[in-house]
Amino acid sequence: MELKRIDCKLTVCKVTEVSSINLESDLYFIGKTDEEVSLVCKTEDTPINTVERDDGWRGFRIQGVLDFSLIGILSKLSGILAEHKIGIFAVSTYNTDYILVKEENFERALNVLDAEGYTVV
């Protein structure tokens, strides 16, 4: 399985509303529930109206489109990283899964996954 690194710094935050989110950016995830509006975005695109924010994330995605019948892909990746004491923040889209790790663990996470047989590009 091929993993593609995302070559930018990311921020995970909560915002008061969505109007200040840069929807022109090529990378962002918005999650809205009855309790919050969460955003993952490039650090330089973080809106001013954040309620809370956590900078210093890096990420990679599973390359290709994952069929919904595939089971355990995210679980296996997160399990490998957990065994090496690397915490994650996962985001799923219709096509695939994205895994974020803190910047200080990024290269180590990719090296661990490479050693487990994943191809990192």
Rank of each mutant, 00 (worst) to 15 (best):
N105Q: 13
E116V: 00
V121Y: 02
T33G: 08
R58M: 15
E17A: 07
D67G: 08
R5S: 09
E52D: 08
T43V: 09
V12D: 09
V40G: 02
L27I: 15
S20T: 12
V91L: 12
E107M: 08
L74S: 06
A82W: 06
V12T: 10
N111R: 10
G72H: 08
D67V: 04
L23D: 09
D26K: 11
E83H: 14
L74T: 10
I30K: 04
H84C: 13
K42E: 14
S92W: 06
Y118P: 04
G59I: 08
V112N: 04
F60R: 03
E116L: 01
F60A: 02
N95G: 07
Q63G: 02
T93H: 02
T96S: 13
V91C: 14
I71A: 13
K9Y: 07
L77S: 01
R53M: 10
N111D: 15
T33I: 08
K76Q: 10
E103A: 14
V121D: 02
D114G: 03
D7E: 12
L77G: 00
M1S: 13
K9T: 07
C13T: 06
K9D: 12
G117F: 00
L39D: 02
G79H: 11
N49P: 05
Q63F: 07
T43Y: 07
T46M: 15
I21P: 10
V91H: 04
K76R: 11
S92Q: 02
L113R: 01
D45E: 14
F60V: 04
R61P: 00
R58D: 02
V101L: 09
G56L: 04
E35Q: 03
L66Q: 05
K76H: 10
M1I: 13
I30F: 01
G117V: 02
E44Y: 09
R108G: 04
G79T: 14
I88E: 05
R108K: 15
I73M: 13
I88W: 02
G72W: 07
T96A: 07
G117W: 00
L113V: 04
V65P: 00
A115K: 14
L110G: 05
R108H: 14
D55R: 09
D26A: 05
D34H: 09
I48N: 09
R61V: 10
V40M: 04
K14G: 05
V120Y: 00
Y98P: 05
L66F: 03
T16D: 13
N22H: 07
Y94E: 04
T119I: 12
I62T: 03
T119L: 11
L39N: 01
E104T: 11
T96H: 02
T119C: 03
V37W: 01
S75Q: 05
A82R: 15
Y98F: 15
S38R: 05
I48S: 11
Y28K: 08
R61I: 11
D45G: 03
D54N: 13
E103K: 12
K4C: 10
V18C: 12
K32H: 03
C13R: 05
V15M: 03
T43F: 06
L70E: 09
L110S: 05
